[in-house]
Amino acid sequence: NQASVVANTLIPINTALTLVMMRSEVVTPVGIPAEDIPRLVSMTVNRAVPLGTTLMPDMVKGYA
């Protein structure tokens, strides 16, 4: 099973992502692959992402 990116904290809308905000976890449904974490750093989220939420491609500006 592939690990996905999961919010390690509440990420407010329009926040630039940092490494400490994200962790990898095997979850269903599958979200952004964990190997993309380095690429996500400094990208911003377009909605509030609660703790434990899987990051989906449409949640990160410029990812999809």
Results as ranks from 00 to 15, higher is better:
T54I: 06
V27L: 05
L40I: 14
N46V: 10
V6N: 01
N1Y: 15
R47N: 05
Y63P: 03
V60E: 00
R23P: 01
P12G: 08
P12W: 03
P38T: 10
V41M: 11
V5N: 01
Q2F: 14
T53M: 15
P50F: 13
S42V: 03
T54E: 01
K61E: 12
N1V: 15
N1K: 05
P12K: 07
R39K: 09
T15K: 08
G62K: 07
E35M: 07
V49W: 03
P29W: 03
L40F: 01
D36K: 07
M21F: 05
D36S: 13
V41F: 06
T44I: 14
L55H: 00
P57I: 05
M22G: 00
V6C: 05
G52A: 09
I13K: 09
M43K: 08
P57D: 06
V49A: 08
T44C: 11
A34D: 08
T53L: 13
N14L: 06
S24E: 13
A48Y: 12
P33W: 07
T53V: 14
A7E: 01
G62V: 04
V45G: 00
R39M: 09
S4A: 03
N46F: 13
T15H: 11
G31I: 01
T28I: 10
P33S: 12
T44G: 05
L19F: 11
T54K: 04
V49I: 15
V49C: 06
P33Y: 15
N8A: 14
L17G: 01
T44D: 04
L10M: 14
S42C: 15
A7I: 04
I11M: 04
A48P: 14
L17Y: 01
V27K: 12
E35A: 08
I11P: 01
D58R: 07
T18N: 05
L51F: 11
E35P: 09
I37F: 03
L40M: 06
V60L: 06
L40T: 00
L51I: 13
D58P: 06
N46C: 08
N46T: 11
A48E: 11
V27A: 08
V26G: 05
L55V: 06
T18W: 03
G52V: 02
R47P: 03
L10H: 14
S42Q: 10
V49T: 05
V27P: 00
S24D: 07
P33I: 13
G52F: 05
S24M: 08
G31A: 04
V5K: 02
A64T: 14
L40A: 00
P50C: 08
P57K: 08
P38E: 08
D36Q: 09
V27W: 03
T44N: 06
L51Y: 15
G31W: 03
M43C: 09
P38V: 11
V26I: 12
R23D: 03
D36R: 10
V26H: 08
Y63L: 05
A7L: 03
A48C: 07
N46A: 09
M21W: 03
S42L: 13
T15R: 06
V30K: 06
P29E: 06
V26D: 15
N8C: 07
I11T: 00
T53I: 12
L40D: 00
N8K: 11
T28S: 14
L55W: 02
T53N: 14
T15S: 06
D36M: 12
T44P: 06
P38H: 10
T28E: 15
V27D: 02
L51N: 12
D36Y: 09
E25P: 01
V60T: 02
T9V: 10
A7Y: 02
P33K: 06
A16V: 14
A7G: 03
Q2V: 13
R39G: 06
I11K: 00
A64G: 11
P50R: 08
T9F: 15
G31D: 00
L10D: 11
N8P: 02
T9I: 15
A34R: 05
T28P: 00
G62H: 08
D36N: 12
